[in-house]
Design a protein around this nucleic acid. Structure first.
Lengths: 336, 336
DNA sequence: GGATGTCGAGAAACCGCTTTCTGGCTTCGA
DNA sequence: TCGAAGCCAGAAAGCGGTTTCTCGACATCC
């Protein structure tokens, strides 16, 4: 093991330049005028010693470390990946870094993880679609500044950035109705998922709004395999008269589409299929997948905007919901 | 803006419990025996004040902050996503967190980003497939402890975890040869990508090894669109006698597959197509995509293992290359 | 020309912890 | 019975910066 030489400190620089630490600090931060001679000497010394200030020391004195944490249930979920990307780019442009904590879908660990992550950072982005609401409320109150992603939390003192699933479902159903469909099936996501609840609410609302419309709910899941596995009940619904299927998300739709093709079911001829999220692959499915597009990257940026405001001591900004946009492709077609 | 009360410090706890800071610290860290009475009083005070130690102060004293950074060119790349996931889970189990820095494919920013990220953390994971080798060498030497992902860097003092693309290509070609193919096309990735270079080396080696084999190289890219766009030259190669195509990665293969289907090309009847990476979707492509599987999550874990050793002052462990495993599916078939 | 004000550099306090040092007390062996 | 040896709690010295405070030098103004 090589001996790593102790890194230069501000004291070393001060000594090398023959000035006080305070002057070095002033040169570094440039917020007070300093004699050009000194500035020059200090800069030379910094270069000579290869000095760079200790982040830890700065954090201690400032009480912040220009880092935020994002807690997610699963880093492999395309939605969170996109949000993480947008968040990290936006934060970086303000000099902040993002630390990520994957709870591996273990709801029982989420609280501890969030507390720990928050403690290391200046603020927190919380994606906890399954956490019981009461616990989430407590957590959010305790860990401010926090931004909650993709959950509604009425009257809580926290900015929320999310997706208007209710509206998305309605728009998607309108699209299908426009194609003549009157009997649909919804392949639901994980029962405990808040966003699945929203979608179900959308389903209920739209059923209430259109008396001639029927939507069967089929238990599904959130992953490719779930979609693949749900083909049988979907076909049963089709037998029973359903002519179109809305999947919880694109992964499920993908899995379903694949299975249907293998079973020789004509999509969209015999059955229309639509997804949600508009993952990049959607366009490349066979047939290309109709989906509700969600601006993942932009959502990440919006989350940062809200968090930044909060960090700066600003007000808790309003909840913002993105309205998914219909991307009508080939997997949905007129009812036969 | 609400007034956030100053958080309790160790001094507050000490005062509240009527003991010295040192004792509180000892109770906290439990590495020296302390009078049970004091332990109890301190614990009570900690609970009463809701105290939790300042991470920044600890970092300053210890000279480390139990955080590592991962620099990636693009968080949307499935390979890096998987590695990040594996890394973050493995690191978490040792009490470390991962900070992520996305350079948005701007090679010119990579160096600065890496330096900055490393400076905030105890160690660095560097994924920089396009960075010029000399610069990478300098960087790696300057920023130790570092683990480099998916690049070879002969004789550099740094652990490397990567994928044996050369071998992967060879195995894939063997699979295709076994199906009777003798004239192939390789849709290459970004010219500056190191892993594309490796694949090309594999192509060259295998061409040298089999005199009866011919592989045309077609410039492509790394994304879905690139695969979609490259269909024409691929078909031209097919006209010229190529019967199978190897794509730079699964995304490209996916895009290509989709375009070919739309053009009515029979896969694998008229043309076999294979990808690389085995993304989750591969199995769900139409037809399901033959691909070389790479254990992304496990690679992340292996990266952590090496980094942990380094952080603990251990030796620079050997380079490890994962041999991709063939997942033969329906997109490749016997030559007609 | 002396009082006043301004500017800028150095000394020192401080951020919140860990760890060494110090010294009082108990315990043990001679 | 007394000195050496442990043991443990508190005092204090850092860790590496920022920021306040102090003070001298110089310019400004009656």
């Amino acid at each position: 093991m090589r001996e790593r030489p102790r890194a230069a400190t501000i004291a070393d620089v001060a000594a090398h330049a023959g000035v006080s630490q305070a002057s070095v600090s002033r040169v570094l931060n440039g917020k007070q005028s300093v004699d050009p001679t000194i500035v020059h000497r200090v800069q030379a010394s910094i270069a000579a010693l290869g000095y760079s200030p200790s982040v830890a020391a700065r954090s201690l004195v400032h009480g912040r470390n220009d880092t935020i944490a994002m807690v997610v249930p699963d880093l492999e979920n395309p939605l969170f990946q996109g949000i993480l990307k947008g968040l990290s780019l936006a934060a970086a442009s303000d000099g902040y870094r993002v630390m990520v904590a994957d709870t591996a879908e273990r709801v029982e660990d989420e609280e501890a993880t969030a507390v720990e992550a928050r403690h290391r950072c200046d603020a927190l982005v919380l994606c906890a679609p399954r956490m019981p609401e009461q616990r989430l409320r407590r957590l959010v109150a305790a860990l401010a500044p926090v931004v909650v992603v993709n959950r509604s939390l009425p009257d809580a003192d926290v900015p929320i950035v999310g997706i208007d699933y209710v509206r998305g479902i309605r728009d998607l159903v309108d699209h299908l109705r426009g194609l003549g469909h009157r009997h649909l099936a919804y392949v639901s996501g994980p029962a405990s998922s808040a966003s699945n609840g929203e979608r179900l609410r959308g389903v209920a609302e739209v059923e209430a709004a259109y008396p001639d419309l029927r939507i069967d709910v089929i238990p599904g899941g959130s992953r490719l395999e779930d979609g693949y596995a749900v083909a049988e009940p979907v076909l049963a619904a089709s037998e029973a008269g359903a002519t179109a299927v809305i999947a919880f998300n694109d992964l499920v739709a993908f899995g379903l589409l694949t299975r249907l093709r293998r079973l020789g079911v004509d999509v969209p001829g015999a059955l229309s299929v639509a997804g949600f999220d508009d993952v990049p692959m959607a366009e490349y499915a066979t047939p290309s997948l109709t989906s509700m597009s969600v601006p993942r990257i932009e959502i990440g940026g919006q989350v940062w905007a809200r968090l930044r405001t909060l960090i700066a001591g600003g007000p808790i900004q309003h909840t913002v919901l993105y309205r998914p946009r219909l991307e009508a492709r080939d997997s949905t077609g007129p009812v036969r």
